[in-house]
């Protein structure tokens, strides 16, 4: 079982993830972005680039009135990013597979802080999802599955931190494989499409002379 999880299943999951994400993006692009022949008031290209950054904080009172999801969102995403790319086992793993000199992993205290931020953010966002009447109405099984699989991957990763017990490391790899298999077919795709969406909306708004 261990060799299956670390061998063929890993390869298969990675393949499904890469091809699935590529397929989703190509399928979206194939639908075509409509041309806007109206004479523009501003540059769509500049607006598209600005749009990538401008939505990083909600406008006016919306951000102030929603500090919980905004801060929890940042905590989760920044924490997860740090864990994914700077946790020592991940750095070693990536160094093994990727060409180049590699990079320095974060110290143990950095891992602890990143993990706390990521867990706190994820749990708070999920609690809001099930408790707030708006998010409760909007949420689907997909949202809960995505949150659950992400939690599982993070949790098993913490258990396997010291790599002292192979079973825990295999469990973590298996959890990540489930996440990779699910990713392209879920809202987790927002990790890629949000940049396309922000750019498209920013470009259109800028053509209309609006900073959005």
């Amino acid at each position: 079982m261990t060799s299956f999880i670390l061998g063929p299943l890993w390869t298969f999951s990675l393949l499904v993830f890469c091809l699935g994400v590529a397929w989703r993006i190509v399928a979206i692009l194939a639908l075509g972005f409509p041309r806007d022949p109206a004479s523009p008031r501003g540059s769509g290209l500049a607006g598209g680039l600005a749009g990538l950054l401008r939505r990083s904080w909600p406008r006016n009172g919306v951000g102030r009135k929603n500090l919980l999801p905004v801060i929890a969102g940042y905590a989760f995403h920044l924490g997860l990013f740090a864990l994914l790319f700077f946790a020592a086992p991940h750095v070693r793993f990536l160094d093994h597979y990727l060409p180049g000199p590699g990079w320095t992993p974060m110290p143990r205290w950095g891992f602890v802080i990143a993990a706390e931020l990521a867990f706190a953010g994820l749990i708070l966002l999920w609690l809001r999802r099930v408790m707030h009447p708006v998010t409760r109405l909007l949420s689907s099984l997909d949202d809960h599955l995505a949150a659950g699989l992400t939690f599982l991957a993070m949790f098993t990763g913490c258990l396997a931190l010291y790599e002292s017990f192979t079973g825990l490391r295999v469990l973590h790899v298996f959890a990540v494989e489930l996440l990779l298999l699910y990713f392209p077919f879920s809202h987790l795709m927002h990790a890629f499409t949000l940049f396309m969406g922000r750019a498209a909306t920013g470009a259109r708004a800028a053509r209309h002379g609006v900073g959005a």
Binding site: P58, G61, S139, H187, M189, H190, G197
Partner: peptide, 21 residues
């Protein structure tokens, strides 16, 4: 349903911030 609509629906994480606006 064009590329923009498909992108936007794919991106929505059901955060509900639009309600406040």
């Amino acid at each position: 349903i064009d590329a923009r609509v498909a992108t936007w629906f794919s991106s929505c994480v059901h955060c509900g911030l639009c309600a406040e606006a």
